[in-house]
Every structure is written in C-alpha cells, then in structure tokens.
Design a protein around this nucleic acid. Structure first.
Lengths: 348, 348
DNA sequence: ATGAAAGCGCTAACAG
DNA sequence: CTGTTAGCGCTTTCAT
C-alpha cells in the first residue's frame, strides 16, 4: 500500500505538505503542488479514508434512514439525496427502519457509530432517551424528512400532507360530492394524521365534519383498500366518491369496485394520494395528489450538506408542496346517477 | 468521548482484554468479561469504527453499485441486500452508476476508497484497466449481480433473462401467435441481449427466426413503448401479439393501443417483462415474466458475506429463475379476428 | 488468560 | 510557505 509517506519522499516534501494538498487547504506553493501531484499520479496513491477519518473526525459519509428502501416512495427519495450528495463528494450509508421503533433506533445508532457527518431521518416512531443521548453526544447535523417530527432534527423537510389532503377533499367537494368515504392509511403515522387534518378543514369549509363521511383506517396497502371498499359496499352506505389514503389503497379500491360491478368513475369517483408510478396506468387513470419525494430527498440532503459545511448555518424548515394531479377517476357528481343511489348521509 | 482506555481503567484490566471482549475473539476469563461488560454499560462506551477499521483493515461496510436506486427494480434489489446485511451486522454504502461507464467507475473507486469489506456490482459497462488495477489491489470479494458480467467479480448472481424470454416467447407461440412484434430495451445492456437470445431460441423451435418478427430496439421507457407501438400501427404490419422488453415499455404500448382504438388483448395480445408493481394494475392486467430482484439482491449479499467471512469460500454462480405470470393481456390467437387482419409475415 | 508495546495512515498545531 | 511533532482509538503480536 502506498501511503502519504511514500508520496512525500518521492516529491521531496514533508507529509504535511502532501496532506495540505490532498485536503486542499492551507498555503502551498505552486511548485510543491506540481511535485506532489506528479508523485501521487506516478505512485497511484489513494488516501486512506479510515486514517483520515480517525484523525479529523470526519468521514465524508451521510447517513440516511428511511422506512423501507424497497418501496418506490422511499427509493425515489433516496435517489434525490444521492444526486445532491454526488455533487458534494459524499457517500450515503443507507438503513431502513421498517417503521418499527426498535429498528429505527438501531439504524440511527449504526449510522452514528460509523461516524457519519450528518443524518437524514425518516422516522415513524419517537426515539428513546438513550438514543437521544448518543445522538446529542455525536453532535452532528440532522435533518428530518417527512414522518414523525423528531426533536433530534436541526431542520425539517416535509411534504405538505395537510394542504395536499385539503386540496384533494376540496376538489371532491367542488365536484359536487357530499357522500364521501375516506380510507386512511396507518393511523399512527404522522402523515396520516396530517392528511386527516386537511380533510377536516376542507369538510369544515362546507359545514361538514368527519362524522358526515364514511371513514375507515387501516394501512397503506392495496389489500386494505380492497377490503375497505368491500365493507363499504356491503354496508349499504351510498357514496359518490372515495378518497384513498394513498395510491396503493386506491388500486385496491378500484379492484374491488370492478369485481363488484361498480363503475368508476361513473358511479363512484376515486381520488388517490402520492402519484405513484402506477397511478396513471390504472383504469380509469387515477386523479391523485403528487408528493415530490425526489425533490424532498434532494432538498434534505442539500440542507444537511450546507449545515455540515457551515455549522453555524441555521436553515428554516422547508415544506414541499403537494400537487393535485387531475386525471380521469374523479368526475362531477351527477344527480341523475344519484337517483338510484339515494344519499343517506347527513348534510349541513 | 469514552475510549477503550476508560473502559479498561474502570474494569481494572488492560486495553487488550477489552479489545478481545468487544471483538469476541481470543481467550477471556468469565470474570474479566463481566467486569468489562459492566464498565462498558456504565460508561456508555461505543467503539470507534474508524480507529478499529484503520487498525484492522476491515470496515463492516458492504458497497453496492446499482444502475439507479430511484428505480423500483433496483430499489427492491437493494432491499434484498439490506435484509441479508442486517442479519450480519453490516451496513450498506450505496452508489448509483446510471448505466454510464464513467459514473460506474467513480462509484467503484469511491466504495473501494471507503474500505468496503466487499462489493456488489450491477454494472452496464466494462471497467477500465486502471479501475481494475485498483480493485485488484484492494483484494476484496466482489459479486456481480445482473448486468454486464465483469471479470472483477468472484461470483455472479444473475436473473435468468434467457429462459425468461424463452418461456415468454414460447407462451406467445403456444397461444397460436405467429405475427409478433418485440420491442427490445436498451440494446447495449447485457439483459437485453440475453432476452433476445431466448427469443431466438423459442422462434427457432417453430422454425422461425428474428427476421420473421417485427423487431425494434429502444430503451426501457414507457415512452419508447408508446412510440414503437405507434410506428408499428402506422407501418401497416399486422401483428397479433407484442412482446414488450419490460413492463414500462408494455405500459406505453397499452396506452398507444388505447389511443388508437386497438383493443388489447382482443386484437393484440401483450406480454411484459419484470412484473413491476404496476403490471397487475394495468387494464388488461399484464401477463409478464417476473424477475425476483429482491431474492437476487439477498442472494448476492449472502454470497458476499460468506466470502468475507471465509476468504477460501468459492461459491458457484447462481442463476435466479424468472417466472411466467399469466394474467389477462395474452389470449389465444383467434383466426376469426385474424380474418380482417391478414398476416403478411413469412411463416416456416 | 492477560498485559506491554508498537504502530495503522493521517492531520493539525506549532515553530520556523 | 513548509517541516516537526504528537497523537486520533484501536488491534495485535509477543511475552509472561
């Protein structure tokens, strides 16, 4: 292995000079630089990151924990982080927390122990005091991205679930729907709660409340959407629109409707959330609310990198707006169709 | 920061003893172990991975380069790797090569420089001699997973694109189709070439060849599928089935068909490849060939971990079989329908 | 079974 | 602008 010592000998300078040159800081004469660069090239020298990290207490690695990389939602987010890190010559150490408290904490500790220069956290559970203690000790910048806001974070990048859901429900309302079902995802998730808040607000604007809609909570799975839709159908409750907690749930709803001979959007409109890849390929194509997860990931990484570069930099939290994407699955409520599906819901 | 020295003092033993205990090797008396463990707990000691790595030349980190994490195909694969690594207490340093030679090489160098204990590589380009040299120097186990087979790899985990495509084409043929189009993905990709080989074989079995089908190559994008389908329609060439290079291309084909009023599968059957999440949600749901990327990722990681644990372990290459998933988009060829779409293709 | 000693390769004062 | 010096925290012979 060729070390900094070999380079210094070859170039006829001291190790410090070589160190300064590869780190790119401190004063170095042009003459020395040329000599050293030549030596590095000839010898094929590559700095040892471990030794460097041990000494300088910096690793050049960013740690990220998301719920699950295998899911496109988070994968895209990680892609965004990666593109930001690449520009800054940082690598990403990736861990998944699987939305489980224990796994999440383990992941955080793992990243801290690997001396990451900073952390990006998408957590779904609060962290224990012990972990908080370790994190505080490490004293590295942390940005939270979506999920449960954590006191650990120095800054937060969030997607506007509240406004997204608000806009979505407003859209349904504006299209004349009043008999509505909402199939919420995992109730314990922060995002789920935010979406519900948005829905409350939208409902309130027309003098309705959560009590006036058919509400069910489950998880962000296609299966839940399927089963919830079946239960809705079986209940006899008539709705003209279903708002799915996300596109996966929406896909399940669509399947159930088809199996039971209910036409969407003719008989029941359907609104999704996320704008996953499959949203536009469903039949009918899904009107939904886009969450730009890649942008969120990129933004979070940028913020983190800025904080790492300048420890005094105190960024404001940023909220990435969600966007209503109108496709085919939501149509104007038509009284004609309602004729044989009389609404039994209370109205304001 | 609490170091191994603090622990040794507290426990009243030498640093070596503490080191042996945390590394879990060498002879240590039960008595000493208890003392040290207590001290570690009381002090909240956490070993410094940098110092440890510098000294021992092992990092506990696995490096992975895939084409692009943001894509569900690779994301799932990474998920599989992660699940295997978690069991072995290794972390994953992730890089994307974006199927570009330069990026791929950079990614490899980055991972090597970070002293990864082993590498999992999904490359789409050959590597330069320089990089090969560096990799050889590093002397760490490397497993290739899909993509271009690389001489760098000590072992290879591949998905059976050949047999997958063979089975797919056989299925089309068995369903009576003879006028077939194949929309291949990026021609330079190894996987693409393998699939074409499979298609050749299947065609050969019924006395046909590539010249007898409508063949177009582009990239693995929905847009390509859309445009290729439009060109096919415009060409006047009649086919009863389209085999799409992957499900994204397939989605594009379906869209084009719909826009041009061609009914699938009634007028044209469609076969995909990959079994992406959206495949079953298309209308008609897509008959396709499943690539178990998560299993491939897991397998590759397991192999690598075994090689890291035992440098003499020489694993055989493993091939993960692809599987034909039958849904709605491919139906039996019907002469009746062919009546007004006379085939102009040569037959054997 | 344990301790002493010798660095791993690099950076960061400090002095010149 | 450059060299000297003193470790960073840990592992690993080598004795004992």
């Amino acid at each position: 292995m060729v070390t900094i010592r070999d380079v210094s000998k070859r170039a006829g300078v001291s190790r410090s000079t070589v160190s300064r040159i590869i780190a790119g800081n401190g004063y170095v004469s042009e003459h020395a630089r040329l000599l050293v660069e030549a030596a590095i090239a000839e010898l094929g020298y590559r700095p040892n990151t471990m030794a460097r990290g041990l000494r300088s207490n910096r690793s050049g690695i960013i740690g990220a924990v998301v719920v699950n990389v295998a899911s496109p939602f988070y994968a895209q987010m990680v892609g965004g982080m990666q593109s930001a890190c690449r520009e800054a010559d940082k690598s990403i150490l990736l861990a998944s927390g699987y939305a489980q408290a224990h796994e999440e904490q383990q992941a955080i500790l793992e990243l801290i122990d690997r001396s990451c220069d900073g952390l990006i956290l998408y957590l779904e559970n609060p962290v224990s005091e012990e972990v908080k203690e370790v994190v505080a000790q490490a004293d590295i910048p942390i940005v939270a991205i979506g999920g449960e806001p954590t006191p650990l974070a120095w800054a937060r990048v969030g997607i506007d679930n509240y406004t997204g859901a608000l806009d979505g429900m407003r859209h349904l309302l504006a299209m004349g729907h009043r008999d509505i079902a909402y199939f919420a995802g995992t109730p314990s998730y922060y995002d789920t709660r935010e979406r519900l808040r948005g829905i409350d607000t939208a409902l309130g604007e027309v003098g309705m409340s959560r009590a006036d809609i058919y509400l069910e909570a489950g998880d962000y799975k296609e299966r839940f959407g399927y089963e919830a839709a079946e239960r809705l159908l079986a209940s006899g409750r008539k709705v003209s629109a279903i708002f799915a907690g996300d596109d996966d749930i929406g896909a399940g709803v669509l399947l159930a409707l088809r199996h039971h001979g209910v036409k969407a959007p003719d008989e029941i409109s359907l609104l999704g959330f996320d704008d996953n890849f499959h949203a536009r390929h469903l039949t009918p194509s899904l009107t939904t609310i886009r969450q730009p997860t890649d942008i969120a990931g990129h933004t979070a990484a940028r913020l983190l990198l800025d904080m790492i570069a300048d420890r005094n930099f105190e960024p404001d939290d940023v909220v990435i707006p969600a966007e209503l994407i109108i496709r085919e699955s939501v149509i104007q409520y038509s009284a004609a169709k309602a004729a044989d599906c009389p609404a039994e819901t209370a109205r304001a």
